[in-house]
Write a protein that binds this DNA or RNA. Sequence first.
DNA 1: ACCCAAAATCTAAGCGCTTAGATTTTGAGA
DNA 2: TCTCAAAATCTAAGCGCTTAGATTTTGGGT
Lengths: 349, 349
Amino acid sequence: MYDVAKHAGVSIATVSMTFRRPDRVKQSTRDLVLASARALHYVPSASARGLADGRTGVLGLFSFDYLLPAEAAVLPTEIAFVREDPDERCREFPLYVDEIQRGMELACRRHGYALMIGGPSRSGGADTVTDIAGRVDGLAVFPQTLPDDALERIAGRIPVVAVSEPPHDDRLSHVTVANRGGMRAVTEHLIREHGRRDLLFVGGLNPAEGRDRFAGFRDALRAAGLRVPRKPLVPETRATPSGRAAVTLPADLRLPEAFVCATDDVALDVLEILAGRGVRVPEQVAVTGFDGIVAGRVARPGLTSVRQPMAEMGRLVVDVLLRHIAEPGRAPDFHELPVQVVLRESCGC
Amino acid sequence: MYDVAKHAGVSIATVSMTFRRPDRVKQSTRDLVLASARALHYVPSASARGLADGRTGVLGLFSFDYLLPAEAAVLPTEIAFVREDPDERCREFPLYVDEIQRGMELACRRHGYALMIGGPSRSGGADTVTDIAGRVDGLAVFPQTLPDDALERIAGRIPVVAVSEPPHDDRLSHVTVANRGGMRAVTEHLIREHGRRDLLFVGGLNPAEGRDRFAGFRDALRAAGLRVPRKPLVPETRATPSGRAAVTLPADLRLPEAFVCATDDVALDVLEILAGRGVRVPEQVAVTGFDGIVAGRVARPGLTSVRQPMAEMGRLVVDVLLRHIAEPGRAPDFHELPVQVVLRESCGC
DNA sequence: ACCCAAAATCTAAGCGCTTAGATTTTGAGA
DNA sequence: TCTCAAAATCTAAGCGCTTAGATTTTGGGT
C-alpha cells in the first residue's frame, strides 16, 4: 500500500479510502490510485486489514476428521478400463456434512464472506481449532469434533453454532433437524403401509443424535400398540479395506421384519451384510436409513430414508452466525428444521 | 496476549514463545502461561500473526460461480413423504470440482493448512479474488473463473495453480488430466467393442478443455480409418427450472450410432433428451461422457465415462502450492494426470 | 479578491502478534 | 562463594492496514 501511495503521489490513507470508501475520494484521485495499484500488482493484505478493523470477513467450519487416505495413491500411468466403480466410493463422498458444507459455501458467497474449512488433525484437535477460531468471525462445528470446553472457550470470543446436534449447551446456538419426528414418521410408514410389526432399531455412531431418533422409533411403536424395546441394537464395527468404520451384525442375529437404522451409513452396511447372507430386501426384510445421503440412491435396492434439508441447514447456519456477528451478546438461537421421508425400494415401496 | 502475559506475570514475548517455540520456555513458565491462557479464554489472532510473520497458513480455492438458489427455499413445516428425489439434485452436487475440492481439503489438513473457499460473486470477480488472494499463502483456481490479467497479478504475489485446465500461460502452474488420451480411449472402445462407426461429438461449455477432448475423438476416428469431422456439434443451452444451463439438441437431428459428449453434464442432458424422444440407449444409440461425476452412476442407464482422478488432483494441487511456497521463485509446474474409462450401460456394455 | 463551509486529503495512533538482539537468571565448575 | 557461558526472559521495532481528527484544498457566494 505504501508503494501504491508513493506511486500515485498520495498518502496511504487515500489509498485505503479508495478501496474502502470510494465515494469519499475525488474521481481523478481514485483513478490515479487504481491505476497505480494495477501497475504494481497490488494485493491488499487481509491479515493487516483484519488486524486493523477487528474482523476477518471469513466464517469457519470445523468439520470431521475424515479418514485420510494413504499418502499417495498409486495411479496407473496408462489409461485403464474399469467395468464400474465400486460402491465404496460414494460411501466416502459426499456425506451429509459435505452437503451442509456446500450450503454454507453458497450462503457465505451470497453474503460476501469466504468460508474457511478446517478440522481436527493428528496433531490434536484443541490447537487446530483455536487456529481456525482466530481467523474467522464466526464458527460452525459439527458434532463430536471438539471437546465442550474448547467450544465454550471459543464461544466466548466469537459466535459458534453447533450443527446437526441436539441442543446440549444453552450457551451455543444450534441448528438441527426433527430427528425424533422424522424417525417416527418412517417407522410408522413401515408399520402402516407395509404391515411390519417386528422392527429392530440399529443404532448409529453418534449417541446424541441416535438417542432422539431412537425415541422417535419408540414413539411409533408405542402409538401402534407394539412392544417398545428399551434399547437399540448397538452394532460392532470393523474397518473396511479403505479405512472406513463399517457396522457388523452378529452372525446368529434373528431376522426381524425390518431394520430401522439410525443413519444411512449404518443402513447401507446392513444392506451389504444382508446381500452377503443372501437375504432379499425388501421381500424378506425391510431396511430404512436416516440422512438422505447420495449413496442411498446409488444403492440397490434404493434406500428409503429420512432426508435432512442439508443445503438449507448450511444456509441457516450462516444466517445465525451473521446475526450474532451483527448483534454481539445476542442470546443463542435454536433451530430445528423439518425433514422429508424419501421412499425408495428398501422399505417395500 | 497482553492480558495473558499480565495474568501470568511474564512478557508478551514469553507468551508468544510458549506457543511458537515451547522448547525455548522453561517448563514451569510454560505451564503458567498455558494456565492463564486457558483461564482467560485466549484465542490468538491469526490476523496479527499473519501480519507479523508474513504467512497465513491458509491455502485458497477460487471456485465456480455456482448457481445460487433462490434466497429462502420454502420448507414444509410438516413431515412430508416423497416417492423419490428428482435426478436434478445430483446434477448440482457433487460436481467434479467438488470432488477436487474435497481432495484439497484432505491434503490441506494433512499438512496443517486450512482451506479457504471463495468464488466470484455478483459484485464482480476481480475484487473478490484479491480479497481471497490477500488471505492465503497459495491459490488454486478453476478454469473460467478469472480473467487472465487478474490471475497474473496474483501470481506475482503468491503461488497460483490453474486446475483442470490445459496449460495456456507458462507463468502459472497447472494440474490437468489426459483429456485427449482419455477421449481417444473411450471413442476407440465404442468403435472396437461396440462396432459403432457413425459417431457424433457433442461439445461442452468449456472451449479449452473441449478442444483437447475433441482432438482425442478425432485421433480415434483417424486411427480407425473413419471420416474425421472438422468441428464438434456445439449445442444450444436452455435454463432448467432450477437455473442450471442444460444442453438442447435440434429437434430434427439425425441420430448417429453414438453421442460422444465432452462432459458428463452434457451426456446426461443428452440422455434425458433421448429418453424424452423415446430413443432407447444404448440399443438405438450409445452415449458417453467425460469426468466421472456421481450423477453418471445414478442415471439410468448408467453413464459410460472417463473418470478424472479428482481426489488425487486436489492432493497434487496442494503439493504444488506448498512446494512453491517453500521455494519462492521456483518455475511453474505442469502435471497431467492419467484417467480411467468407466464402462457402464450407456455405451452398450 | 476574499471568505468560509464542504470536500478532499493527510497525519499518526493503533490493531495483536513475532522475533532480533539486549538483558537477566541459572547453575555447573572452580 | 564466585565466575561465566548457557538458558530464560524481556525490550522494542516492526508487519500493512484502518480511521479519528487535523489540515489543506476547493469553489460558490460576496
